[in-house]
Design a protein around this nucleic acid. Sequence first.
RNA 1: GGAGCCGUCGCCAAGAGGCCUAAGGCAGUGGAUUGCAAAUCCGCCACCGUCGGUUCAAAUCCGACCGGCUCCUCCA
Length: 518
Amino acid sequence: MSLRVYNTLTRQKEEFKTVVPGQVAMYLCGPTVYKPSHIGHMVGPVIFDTIKRFLAYSAYKVKFVINITDVDDKLIVKAAEKGTTVDALAKEMTQDYFDNLKTMGVDSVDIFPYATEHIQEMQDIIATLIKKDFAYPLDGDVYFNVPKDKDYGKLSHRNIEEMMAGTRVEATDRKRNPADFALWKAAKPGEPSWESPWGPGRPGWHIECSAMSRKHLGDTIDIHGGGLDLMFPHHENELAQSECCTGKTFSRYWLHNGLMQAGKTSGKVGGGHSREGDLAESQQEQEAGKIAGSKGAASVKELFKVHHPETVRFFLLATHYRSPIDFSDDNLLQTGKSLEGFYRLFETYEHITKQSFYALKASTTRAGSVELKGEPAAYFQELADYRTRFLDSMDDDFNTGGAVGTLFELRKTLNAFINDQKLEGAGASNTAAVAALTTGLTLLRELSLLLGVFRDPIAKAAAADDGFSNELMQLVLDLRAEARKSKNWPLSDMIRDRLTALKVVVEDRPDGARWKRG
RNA sequence: GGAGCCGUCGCCAAGAGGCCUAAGGCAGUGGAUUGCAAAUCCGCCACCGUCGGUUCAAAUCCGACCGGCUCCUCCA
């Protein structure tokens, strides 16, 4: 099966064909760095990070760019509020963004270009647009002339006449047409500004992406991504500017991810108060303070105090990227629970082989995928089927939700194999069976790494790593083992009950007792 | 008012004309296993918002309706 992607431009799934065979240029609209990231800011990066992993696995050479918007109205307002400079605020919030990306396991981004470092490139585009009569200067501003662009509206599937019919034409509006948008804004006192042929000023909202995408990825890119909320006007305008400037296709595929929603009933999320609509304010808020009285969504850092980042990432990928995501503590808690079985399997595997799942060497390419041959044939056949289904799901418009499903099925097969072969007990010395198990775990590692999950051991509770506690626990369990040997059930049960009360879970496995803090 | 999205088991969520008498997870439940538990495995647990239509065939296409949601601009 070959890759098919849903293209917003055509509103259908299309076969994926890149400009340059074997290479992918991918651009994702990044944040305006004026406040700490909330979970909505992480959705796009996690999804496109996963897309990049899969494309790379599928033998594409991918260049992935996320921009940082470090000049904007919201920044100016916020900096003034906080009594700091735009530059200082932007730097602080950019760092926050980077921290959060790292925690979420988003590490495949090649370049993070800054808007303020591309003023010249923006001006070049504006100058070309003026020359081609697609834009006009007006008292220090420069506007894009929307009616001049006959393709305008093709991305968001709107037609200009209808739009204008619905637009209130202000008597004071100086623009030639209400739909025209600013490419360059004349400087106001106290605001950051740059020299330009049209006088000192700063860029409009959309021009930065056109400029940075062009500079780092070329006139025509393969994938342009962003939240659904950015489709109009941001992407529509970007598209118009870029194509009118270069005369070429701006992006072959437009991928829009669904937005987070704070469910009406979900109430608090990650410890922060959220009202309906707050989260949907989304990836790149277009208007600061749009929702009056809004406290805003919980910051990502607050969220991580309550939910493990891996749980959050898994949760985001368990739903199709184009669907809205109902974000709530309950949902996250359920996801966390569903992951425990994986962690337990990894633990069991380590007990059997004395080797960590996390140390398994997995292929990062489809061509190098682990070989699934051997005995028992039925077991290997199942593994092969899961791999096929997982990859087919991903090939079908990056259906991570379907792919996640096969991961759970794979887990079940692996556990069943351990049971059948008694690998925790009598079968432990069956080296062929243990090797077969390792093959299965290697497949699991290969596939889960594609989603960017189960990359590293999750941090255990601090006390569990404390040598003294470990030895003490070993002592208690040894004593209990003695009691069990002499069938002193009341005593062994008492020990277990008392430990349970201390939130220590004891499991009597075939190869001995195992404990962990609950 | 205009444009668009969504409605699949108690909850989350794949599937997008026949392989669906609908994947997977969480919860529930019966069993195997266990001294008892825990964990694990096996089994059970949905006719796909409603009503019509198209078709040999629809959860999947069309229409209406009901319910949920988003966007409609950088000037305010």
